[in-house]
Computed example of a mutant assay.
Amino acid sequence: MLKVEQISVRYGPAVGVERVSIEVREGELVTLIGANGAGKSTTLRAISGLEPLAHGRITFDGHQISGASAAAVIERGVAHCPEGRRVFPQLTVSENLEMGAYRRLDRNRVRQDRERMLDRFPRLRERLKQAAGTLSGGEQQMLAIARALMARPRLVMFDEPSLGLAPNFVEMIFDLILEVRREGTTVLMVEQNAYAALEMCDRAYLLENGRVVNEGPAEKMLADPNIRRAYLGG
C-alpha cells in the first residue's frame, strides 16, 4: 500500500533522514522505533507532504505522492495524527472533528462518522462545545485520533500517541489503535515505548541517525539482543 524509497530530508546542512526505505502492506500495523532524533517523525511528515524531499520517492496505492501537498495526500487516503496532538485549541471539540473532514463532500456520511466517533469516544460527546485547548492530555489525544479518522483514511499514521499520557490513558489509546486496525484501516506508528509498539505491531523498522539500521517481524525484533539492550531495558 505504501512504499517509501530512499527518501532524504534535510534542514539546511542538517540531515533529517538519509536514504530511508520502508513498506507498509494493506491491513498491517507497522511501527518505527528508535531514539529521539532518529528521524521517525520526519519520515511521517515527509509521507504527509509536510516536509519536502531532497531525494527519493513515495508511492501510495501505486500513485506517487512525493511532492504532493498535504491536502492532496489526505485526499489519497493518508491521515496523520501528529506528535503532541496538535488540536486546534481555540476551536470546540465539535469544530475540531469537522476539520478532520473538511475535504469531504459527502456531508451525510460526515455526520454519521461524527456520531460514530462520539460513540467511540464518549468523553468527547460530553465536551462537544468545550474549547479543545481546555481538555486533558488524554482527551486531546482522543480528539486528535478521532479527527484523523474523520477523513476516512485507508492508512492512518500515529506519531507518539502515548507521549505524556497517564498510564490509564496509554492503555486506552493503544486499545483504540488496535481497534482501528481490526476494523480494516492500515496503521503506521511511531512510538517511544518500543516494547509496547513491538508487542502490537506486525513489523518494525529501527532508525538510528536518520537511517534504517534494522527491520523485520515484531517477534524477531523483540528477540534481538541488541535491540533489547538498547531499547527494551535489557
Rank of each mutant, 00 (worst) to 15 (best):
Val156Tyr: 08
Asp106Ser: 04
Val190Glu: 09
Gly137His: 03
Arg107Cys: 00
Arg125Gln: 13
Glu215Met: 08
Leu198His: 03
Arg203Tyr: 11
Ser136Ile: 03
Pro225Gln: 07
Ser41Met: 07
Ala144Gln: 03
Thr134His: 11
Ala46Leu: 06
Ala101Lys: 07
Met117Ser: 06
Pro13Ala: 15
Gln130Tyr: 10
Arg19Gln: 15
Leu149Ala: 04
Ser136Leu: 04
Val213Ala: 13
Ala146Trp: 10
Arg123Asp: 02
Thr42Met: 11
Glu139Tyr: 01
Arg107Ile: 05
Tyr11Trp: 09
Arg127Lys: 15
Ser136Gln: 04
Lys3Asn: 14
Leu118His: 06
Gln140Pro: 01
Leu232Phe: 10
Ala68Gly: 04
Val15Asn: 05
Val9Gln: 06
Ala196His: 05
Gly27Tyr: 11
Leu198Ser: 05
Phe174Pro: 03
Arg228Gly: 12
Ala14Cys: 01
Glu160His: 04
Met157Asn: 09
Asp119Tyr: 00
Arg109Tyr: 01
Glu28His: 08
Lys3Arg: 15
Thr186Trp: 12
Arg107Gln: 15
Ala38Ser: 15
Ile173Arg: 06
Ser8His: 02
Ile173Tyr: 06
Met142His: 07
Ile65Tyr: 11
Pro13Lys: 14
Gly39Leu: 10
Ala35Glu: 14
Gly164His: 07
Arg19Gly: 14
Tyr11His: 10
Gly164Cys: 01
Gln130Ile: 08
Thr134Cys: 00
Glu28Ile: 00
Asn96Ile: 05
Tyr195Thr: 10
Ala146Lys: 10
Glu5Tyr: 01
Phe169Thr: 12
Val73Phe: 09
Val4Gln: 11
Glu139Leu: 02
Ser136Glu: 08
Ile74Asn: 10
Glu215Phe: 09
Ser8Pro: 03
Ala218Cys: 02
Val93Ser: 01
Ala79Ile: 06
Arg45Leu: 13
Gln6Phe: 00
Phe60Trp: 15
Arg152Thr: 11
Asp119Gln: 14
Arg107Tyr: 13
Tyr205Asn: 04
Gly133Met: 09
Ile47Glu: 07
Phe121Ser: 03
Val30Thr: 12
